[in-house]
Simulated scan of single mutants.
Amino acid sequence: MDRVLPPGLASTTTVNFQPPGGGRAAPRGDFVMIADEVQDALKALRRGGIDGVSLHNHGLTDEPRLFFSHIWAVDDAVGLARAPRPAVAVTNSEPAAWSRPGRT
């Protein structure tokens, strides 16, 4: 909706990867979406082998209405590393400048 929400407002999508060993990864994180994005984003995560373990909102009267899904998986590190991108692509999100390849 043409509004920039700074990361300090905790309205960002984050995925952290933990290394359990054996070529596996355990991504966990928080996806933030508006209502129209929820189904497509969760479907994209599931296709990539990542489970949504909760879906909730933080505010009572936020505008736009934001939904948060906590995510979790343990599997092949390379496959799971590719999984979040299609889900982010169906949201109206833009990676922070510092996280884009080729930027510092």
Score class of each variant (00 low, 15 high):
residue 1 M to Y: 04
residue 2 D to L: 04
residue 2 D to T: 06
residue 3 R to H: 11
residue 3 R to E: 15
residue 3 R to W: 08
residue 3 R to S: 14
residue 6 P to G: 13
residue 6 P to S: 11
residue 6 P to W: 07
residue 6 P to Y: 09
residue 7 P to F: 11
residue 7 P to G: 10
residue 9 L to W: 07
residue 11 S to W: 11
residue 11 S to D: 14
residue 12 T to P: 00
residue 15 V to R: 06
residue 15 V to D: 09
residue 15 V to N: 09
residue 16 N to F: 11
residue 17 F to H: 08
residue 17 F to M: 09
residue 18 Q to W: 02
residue 18 Q to A: 12
residue 18 Q to F: 06
residue 19 P to D: 13
residue 20 P to E: 15
residue 20 P to L: 15
residue 21 G to Q: 04
residue 21 G to V: 02
residue 22 G to I: 04
residue 23 G to W: 03
residue 23 G to A: 14
residue 24 R to F: 02
residue 24 R to W: 02
residue 26 A to F: 02
residue 28 R to G: 15
residue 28 R to C: 15
residue 30 D to I: 11
residue 30 D to R: 11
residue 31 F to S: 06
residue 31 F to K: 01
residue 32 V to C: 09
residue 33 M to E: 07
residue 33 M to H: 04
residue 34 I to W: 01
residue 34 I to Q: 12
residue 35 A to D: 12
residue 35 A to Q: 08
residue 36 D to P: 00
residue 37 E to V: 03
residue 38 V to H: 10
residue 38 V to I: 14
residue 38 V to Y: 06
residue 38 V to F: 08
residue 39 Q to N: 10
residue 40 D to L: 03
residue 41 A to K: 00
residue 41 A to I: 01
residue 42 L to R: 00
residue 42 L to A: 08
residue 43 K to R: 12
residue 44 A to Q: 02
residue 45 L to I: 06
residue 47 R to G: 13
residue 47 R to P: 02
residue 47 R to I: 14
residue 48 G to Y: 01
residue 48 G to R: 02
residue 49 G to D: 13
residue 50 I to M: 09
residue 50 I to Y: 03
residue 51 D to V: 05
residue 52 G to F: 03
residue 53 V to N: 14
residue 53 V to D: 15
residue 53 V to M: 15
residue 54 S to T: 15
residue 55 L to R: 02
residue 55 L to Q: 06
residue 56 H to M: 13
residue 56 H to Y: 13
residue 57 N to F: 13
residue 57 N to V: 12
residue 58 H to F: 05
residue 58 H to K: 06
residue 59 G to H: 09
residue 61 T to G: 09
residue 62 D to H: 05
residue 64 P to A: 09
residue 64 P to I: 04
residue 66 L to E: 10
residue 67 F to W: 14
residue 67 F to D: 10
residue 68 F to M: 10
residue 68 F to D: 10
residue 68 F to W: 09
residue 69 S to K: 01
residue 69 S to A: 14
residue 69 S to D: 05
residue 69 S to H: 03
residue 69 S to N: 05
residue 70 H to W: 12
residue 72 W to C: 11
residue 72 W to N: 13
residue 75 D to Q: 02
residue 77 A to M: 10
residue 77 A to W: 04
residue 78 V to I: 04
residue 78 V to Q: 01
residue 78 V to R: 00
residue 79 G to L: 03
residue 81 A to F: 05
residue 81 A to P: 00
residue 84 P to L: 04
residue 85 R to C: 03
residue 86 P to L: 11
residue 87 A to V: 02
residue 88 V to M: 13
residue 88 V to W: 11
residue 89 A to Y: 02
residue 89 A to L: 08
residue 90 V to D: 09
residue 90 V to F: 03
residue 90 V to N: 04
residue 91 T to Y: 00
residue 91 T to M: 11
residue 93 S to T: 04
residue 95 P to G: 13
residue 95 P to T: 12
residue 95 P to D: 12
residue 96 A to T: 06
residue 96 A to K: 07
residue 96 A to I: 09
residue 98 W to H: 05
residue 99 S to W: 07
residue 100 R to D: 15
residue 102 G to S: 08
residue 103 R to M: 15
residue 103 R to Y: 13
